[in-house]
Design a protein around this nucleic acid. Structure first.
Lengths: 146, 146
DNA sequence: CTCTTTGCAAAAGTTTTGCACGCTC
DNA sequence: GAGCGTGCAAAACTTTTGCAAAGAG
């Protein structure tokens, strides 16, 4: 992802805030920038630590409050690793999945495919469950780390 | 899952403890029983709360220590829900996935299939990542709740 | 100028740790 | 009987909340 992409995402998020009646404030922008530009998922504490390098960093409470707001707006999602979770990254839209390097943490978004959807439909039929959401994350070693 | 299945699982876990040099103690057994017999994923705190109904319940520290041990032995796994996670349930073996009802919490284990494996191999080729683990969990409404 | 949002500090909640005692093997 | 495992209580962390003051629209 290149710099213009980050900027575009940040603009998108600012628009979403406006449209939902939220004010665009300095602390919110700081959290948004950190999240939008990170190549790896971050925990709330990590976001706070990173913000400490900025001029007049947000308080930890504002970090949590901003994350809650972004979550309500569906702009972020939580990453769940087999060991340890609650890291956060920008939401992926549509049928896509996250691929995360267990060595360097770098994430990559990959396309879902019809085979996975087909599988889910089969499970629905077999079990009588009405599947409304699925969580598929892949963990491995990226080319740089192997 | 029927009662004999629970018992079998408990025996299996006790054997695993023995074989790995861990002692089979009352507090450990209490945690193991609660976990093995639960139909829904539980958090450490929920396990502790449930144990309070027993005679001489374990301390909260023993609950955490037991969970850590079971995790090291690969006998449990964590459930990651889109909102809220770190609930715990017995580990599923092989290529299987969890299907969790978002209304009542009941879990069900479903077989993975070749289409999913195929998909993962395709992603490996496309990205150069070496995928070592994948997390696929399905969320929906079970027949009872719909 | 209004009313949302902030920082601070306190509170609530969760998880980890040290240590003397107890229980498993 | 040896030494692992326990409960307890304190400590370390993380997250949430109340409130007066600051700042966005």
């Amino acid at each position: 992802m290149t710099a213009p992409d980050y900027d575009q995402r940040i603009e998108h998020w600012k628009t979403a805030l406006h449209q939902n009646g939220y004010r665009v404030t300095q602390p919110r922008l700081q959290v948004i920038r950190i999240l939008a530009e990170s190549e790896i998922p971050l925990t709330p504490q990590e976001i706070y630590q990173l913000s400490l390098g900025l001029d007049s960093p947000p308080g930890i409470a504002s970090v949590y409050r901003t994350l809650e707001m972004l979550d309500d707006l569906g702009l972020i999602q939580q990453i769940h690793q087999p060991s340890g979770c609650h890291a956060i990254c920008p939401a992926v839209e549509g049928h896509k999945h996250l691929l995360i390097c267990t060595s360097c943490g770098q994430m990559r978004v990959v396309e879902g495919n019809e085979a996975v959807s087909e599988y889910i439909r089969m499970i629905e039929e077999q079990t009588g469950y009405q599947v409304e959401e699925h969580l598929l994350q892949l963990f491995g070693i990226c080319q740089n780390c192997s």
